[in-house]
């Protein structure tokens, strides 16, 4: 197997006395889709945020595309840190609360970073943005402000905004948790189609169907440690560790009580495609 595109080695993160990550290691290969599951407070979101340095790890090393990431460097007075900026342009992130910029139109949201971070010509950025918006069926909404869009539409625009930077890896931080149940499917479908195209994805999620069907690998995190890491069918379908079983029992019982969102699995099944194995 080729060298991993992203290596996390023994990552620790402490907030004061609270050690949220207690030595997490993870190799992510090109085209891999990894679901990161675990109870809230287990540290899975913090782990994701350490990858693009929205949180600075307390210890451990990050290697991205063969280069060690120097996360200890202090930014200058105005925060101009080219290495950090370059890292973040290659790692896209999507948040639970979409975080679209409400004062800009949908199109402006998408072209903002390509123009002002990558220095692309406006015409080039707009062309790519319009193609991406057309792909998610929101081309005619491009001049609307985000507040005019449903939660699911906003989240899909947020995904497209990250894609416009042509990232190597995408991070998804509980991107469907804030959505009304009937809007979850459209977002998961988009993620499934990205997975099918071979995008490398780290997905923190509570959607076990998605984790099982779309991702190749699942990582269960508990109390800041990786407890189980393996094929997603195995980790979710037949977990070996008691903590994993306990967690999945709780989640799946609640899940069945509420009822699965319809349509997700169809899309997910169709989209399921694995990179060269």
């Amino acid at each position: 197997m080729s060298a991993p595109v992203l290596r996390l080695v023994d990552i620790h993160k402490r907030f004061g006395d609270n050690e949220v990550l207690r030595g997490v290691s993870l190799d992510v290969h090109d085209g891999e889709v990894i679901a990161i599951i675990g109870a809230s407070g287990s540290g899975k979101s913090t782990l994701l945020r350490c990858v693009n340095l929205l949180e600075r790890p307390s210890a451990g090393s990050i290697v991205f595309q063969g280069e060690a990431v120097d996360y200890r460097a202090r930014p200058g007075l105005l925060g101009g840190d080219r290495a950090l900026s370059a890292l973040r342009t290659r790692i896209g992130m999507v948040f639970q609360s979409y975080n679209l910029w409400p004062h800009k139109t949908v199109l402006e949201n998408v072209v903002e970073a390509p123009i002002h971070v990558r220095g692309e010509a406006r015409a080039v950025a707009v062309e790519r943005a319009e193609a991406l918006l057309a792909r998610i069926g929101l081309a005619e909404k491009r001049h609307d402000h985000p507040s005019r869009l449903s939660g699911g539409q906003q989240q899909r625009v947020a995904i497209v905004r990250a894609l416009a930077m042509e990232p190597k890896v995408m991070l998804f931080d509980e991107v469907t948790s804030a959505l009304d149940p009937e809007l979850v499917g459209e977002v998961l479908a988009l993620m499934a189609s990205l997975a099918a195209e071979g995008m490398t994805m780290l997905v923190v999620t509570h959607e076990m169907d998605f984790a099982r069907e779309v991702s190749h690998r699942a990582v269960f995190i508990d109390e800041g440690r990786v407890v189980e890491d393996g094929d997603s069918d195995t980790v979710i379908g037949a977990p070996t560790h008691p903590r994993t079983r306990q967690f999945l029992d709780r989640v799946l019982r609640r899940h069945h009580a509420v009822g699965a969102s319809p349509g997700i699995l169809d899309v997910a099944h169709r989209a399921r495609a694995r990179p060269d194995e």
């Binding site: 925060g79 900026s85 910029w101 004062h103």
Partner: peptide, 27 residues
């Protein structure tokens, strides 16, 4: 301002100063 407004700008590679000028202050 919700923290996510700055974070989403930083996550796209903006410097804090650029994010302040283009994303935060206009709002």
């Amino acid at each position: 301002m919700p923290r996510g407004q700055m974070e989403s700008a930083l996550a796209l590679g903006m410097s804090p100063a650029l994010a302040m000028r283009r994303i935060i202050l206009p709002q």
